[in-house]
Every structure is written in C-alpha cells, then in structure tokens.
Computed example of a mutant assay.
Amino acid sequence: MSEKKLIKQGAESRIYIIDHLGQNIIQKERFPKKYRIEQLDKMITKQRMKAELKALSKCHNANIKVPIVYNSDFKTHSIFMEYFPNAITVKDAFNKFNIDNDKIGIERLGNILGHTIGKLHNNGIIHGDLTTSNFLIENYKYSENPNTISELITIDFGLSRFFDSSQNVFISSILEDKAVDLYVLERAFISTHSDLTDIMENVILKAYISEVDNNFGNIKKSNPNLLVDNILQTQLNTNLNDNESDISDDEIIINDKLNKSINYNTNKTASSFIFKKLAEVRLRGRKRTMVG
C-alpha cells in the first residue's frame, strides 16, 4: 500500500484514500477508544468490523448498491473498499437541491432514499445508523433527466444487524429494529434538513411503504429461507398481542412535534406493523421497552 490521504474522521473510524497499484481505494480504519477497557474495546471493534463485512456481503447478494470490499485486516482494524470519486452524500445533495430550489431533484432523491431503506429492511438488514450522510449519490444533478440515476450507494454498516433463518428472534424484536432505524433517520433528517421535513413524511416514508408492501413478495420468491419472510407472513395472518400502546392500527401519527400528520389505512400490510411500532418508538424515544 502506498501513501494514504485522510479525507474524513468520525467518532469510530478514519477514512483514507489510498493509491493502490494505480487505483484509488478507501481504507476505513477503526481506532482504539482510550476510555474503554482495552479488551472490551478490541471485542467491540472486532464485532463491528464483522457486522459491517457481513452486511456489505448481504447487500451485494440482494443487489443493493454498496462499496465492493477488496480486503480486510483485523490487526489494523481496517476494511479496504471501493472508492466513488464522483459521489457526494445524500445530505449534501439535499442541501444543494434546496439551495437551487430544485423541487424535482429533492422529491426524486427522497423517493429513491425511501425505496433503498425499504430494500434493506425487506432483506432483513438493519442499518443501525440511518442518516443522509450514510448514503452516496454519484451524480446529484440528475433531476434534469430523472432516468440517469436509479439507486443510491449505502455506506457505514458498523452498527448494522441482520436476520436470517439461522437466528431465533421474536417478531417484536425485528419490528423494533426496523422502527428504530426509521426513527433515527427521522430525527437526523429533522435536525439536518429542518426546512425539508415535509419530504420525510410525504416522500421518503411513502416510498418506504411502497417498497416494503409491493416488493416484499419478490424477496420471498428469491430467498424463501429468509427469516423475515416467515415473520412478516405471520404478521399478515395474525394480530400481534401488543398491549404496550393505545395507538390504533388505523392511524399512524408522523412528525407530531411539527403538528403534521399522515393517516395510513394499514389494512394489516407488512409496513403497518412497522409503523405501529414506529409510533411507539416516537413516544418513548430509542429506549427499548423492558417487559417480563
């Protein structure tokens, strides 16, 4: 490996560009946390690296666009992956569209974002840190020709979780994780794009519902052993005995702090159970219920 250039540092890792054999690639290097016990820090770092690698692999298998992984090194806590030189974050794209008053671009981007998150959840992948900074777009000036881009690049799966047929989990646990994923995005969106909050409720969440409800059957056919399929099928055929909330299935309140709401006629669709749980998460925040 040749000289590397630091381009970003977050709370968990540093991102470098490396010129490797004439090709620029990304090195994501997790650094030690001095405030943690060394053994604990090593264990957490290893777990998060494994989670990220597995999530990236699952996304590739599900045809969800993510960086290609070239190599990993657990000694240096590094993952070496594909670099997208012409990409910017969805956060920056929203801001640029907003400055340009490009409403078509904003709605198109929000729609693709909602569908992308729906694809992740349909395939049993919980991102864990959904913000507009963790999605990339390679050509943000695409609203002049909406057909030039049809997908986003999802990154940063260090906090991800996923469900498959080898795991024994409760239905409510999967719903909770999906709801918390959406809640994290919602709070991040309100904080980062405070003048675009209507896009969250009117575009992103509606696109998510469309993806989850309309395309889940395709996931079922292509991966019949996916645990999420069995769980959602159970949800669609039975009523969950969930007495934790008085909110009805027939009304989901979105963005109540902004005094705005959308009423969804749930009709026991796959998304209705997720949105019922999301309403509960909004009432209590990200904290999980401790019952039993």
Results as ranks from 00 to 15, higher is better:
80 F>Q: 10
275 F>P: 03
198 D>E: 01
16 Y>C: 02
243 N>D: 07
84 F>G: 06
72 S>R: 12
210 S>C: 08
10 G>Y: 03
282 R>C: 02
99 I>R: 15
126 I>D: 05
3 E>K: 14
131 T>I: 06
154 T>F: 00
72 S>L: 04
106 I>D: 00
226 L>T: 10
42 K>G: 04
27 Q>Y: 06
174 I>W: 14
28 K>T: 13
276 K>W: 12
1 M>L: 14
32 P>Y: 04
280 E>L: 11
180 V>C: 05
90 V>D: 02
155 I>H: 00
37 I>C: 12
2 S>E: 15
124 G>S: 08
290 M>L: 14
139 N>I: 00
18 I>N: 10
104 I>L: 04
108 R>P: 00
160 S>F: 05
102 D>G: 02
6 L>W: 00
250 D>K: 04
197 T>I: 15
93 A>E: 09
95 N>K: 15
172 S>L: 10
220 K>P: 02
157 F>S: 06
194 S>E: 11
93 A>L: 09
158 G>P: 03
140 Y>V: 11
278 L>T: 08
196 L>Y: 07
40 L>H: 06
71 N>Y: 14
196 L>T: 07
271 S>D: 09
56 L>F: 08
2 S>L: 04
43 M>C: 03
190 I>W: 01
8 K>V: 05
227 L>K: 15
50 K>L: 08
123 N>A: 06
140 Y>Q: 13
142 Y>G: 04
224 P>L: 07
78 S>K: 04
64 I>G: 07
126 I>G: 04
148 T>P: 02
205 L>F: 10
240 L>M: 14
89 T>R: 07
281 V>Y: 00
57 S>G: 05
30 R>F: 02
236 L>F: 01
214 N>K: 10
158 G>C: 04
262 I>E: 00
271 S>N: 09
103 K>G: 00
107 E>M: 03
194 S>T: 13
192 T>G: 01
217 G>A: 08
15 I>P: 03
79 I>C: 06
42 K>I: 06
73 D>Y: 03
47 Q>K: 15
131 T>P: 05
114 G>N: 10
256 D>A: 12
207 A>W: 01
153 I>W: 01
267 N>Y: 11
263 N>W: 00
34 K>A: 13
212 V>E: 04
9 Q>C: 05
88 I>R: 08
147 N>H: 03
290 M>D: 11
226 L>V: 06
133 S>N: 12
116 T>K: 13
115 H>L: 05
149 I>H: 08
106 I>S: 01
78 S>Q: 05
207 A>E: 06
101 N>C: 01
99 I>N: 13
140 Y>F: 15
239 N>I: 15
282 R>G: 01
71 N>T: 08
29 E>V: 15
30 R>P: 07
51 A>Q: 14
200 M>W: 03
219 I>C: 11
18 I>W: 02
